[in-house]
Simulated assay, not measured.
Amino acid sequence: MIPPDPTAIERLKARWRAEMRHRLAAMPEADRMAESCRICEVLAGSLPWQRARVVLLYAPLPGEPDVRPLWRRALEEGRQLALPRYDPVRDAYVPALVTRPEEDLCHGRYGVKEPRPELPALSWDQPDLIVVPGLAFDPWGARLGRGGGHYDRMLHLTHGFRCGVAFRCQWTGRLPALPHDVRMHAVVTAGGWFEVELKGPEPPGQDPAVSTR
């Protein structure tokens, strides 16, 4: 088998990012709110959520599914809630515990809300469920990030169940991926819960101009 050309894959990823930003910009705010609520419902009703003792969620950026209702739900159900926090010593993100979301968060290095520096950090093998945003996901578990590589580095360290969350317009056809890209175990959209087939190679990525969704 001929190995994928990393340069060609990165060019294809760049085209996909432009396409997904266009789709998200065209999405009405009412649809964002409605789909976010449905995503939270589906995720909270899933078996991985029910089994998880430690849940790693995230503080949503504009254009990402709003999973903040799950912060409080996790705590009310007796689970430990963690969010990523940038560690300048390691130059990497670590999961940090949050018990009072209204008071425990501050603006981090990249303007994203994250746990305050004094809150306890966890090791990456502790979260049982990792909820992952992205610009796009496909049925083979490939994830298209924003290009900074922060989540990619985090996901290489985790052993928990990796679940992508996306709006309907972000669930798409074959995304470009390299062998070292970490795939999701499942993806949740407003359309439901989608298990991913992790066995075997992914089919080659395609150009967004010919994508089906």
Rank of each mutant, 00 (worst) to 15 (best):
D207P: 01
A59Y: 02
L119E: 03
V98W: 01
L24V: 11
R143T: 07
Y58N: 08
G160R: 00
P28F: 06
A30S: 07
L57K: 08
A177W: 00
L75N: 05
C106I: 08
R162K: 15
G134N: 05
I39S: 09
P6H: 14
A190Q: 11
S36P: 02
M154T: 11
P60V: 14
Q50G: 07
V89A: 14
Q50W: 08
A82P: 02
D138Y: 05
L70W: 05
S211P: 07
S36H: 04
Q50S: 14
L43T: 02
L81T: 02
L47Y: 15
E35R: 14
R153N: 13
R51P: 01
R11Y: 08
R38I: 13
A166H: 04
V131G: 09
T172A: 02
R146F: 10
L57R: 08
G191M: 15
L144M: 05
V112K: 02
H185G: 11
P28C: 10
P6N: 14
L12P: 03
K113E: 11
K113P: 02
G173V: 01
R32E: 13
P201G: 03
G45F: 04
T158W: 06
P4S: 13
L12D: 02
A44P: 02
Q170E: 06
A92E: 07
P139H: 12
A82C: 03
E35L: 11
R168L: 15
A44W: 00
L119K: 00
E118H: 04
G160K: 00
E29I: 15
G147W: 03
E77I: 03
G134H: 03
D128K: 04
L57A: 13
L122R: 08
E103D: 09
L155E: 04
G192P: 11
L56M: 10
D138K: 09
A52P: 00
R23W: 06
H22L: 09
G200S: 13
L129A: 04
A209H: 05
R51F: 05
R11F: 12
P120H: 06
A26W: 06
E195I: 15
V55C: 05
L47M: 08
V210H: 09
P203F: 11
D5L: 15
W140A: 04
I39L: 10
V210T: 06
L61F: 09
Q170N: 10
M27K: 13
E35H: 14
R213M: 15
L129S: 06
A186I: 06
L81Y: 01
W124C: 09
G173P: 04
A177E: 05
D138H: 10
P62F: 13
P4L: 13
D87E: 14
P115G: 04
P62M: 08
G147I: 03
G205V: 00
L43G: 08
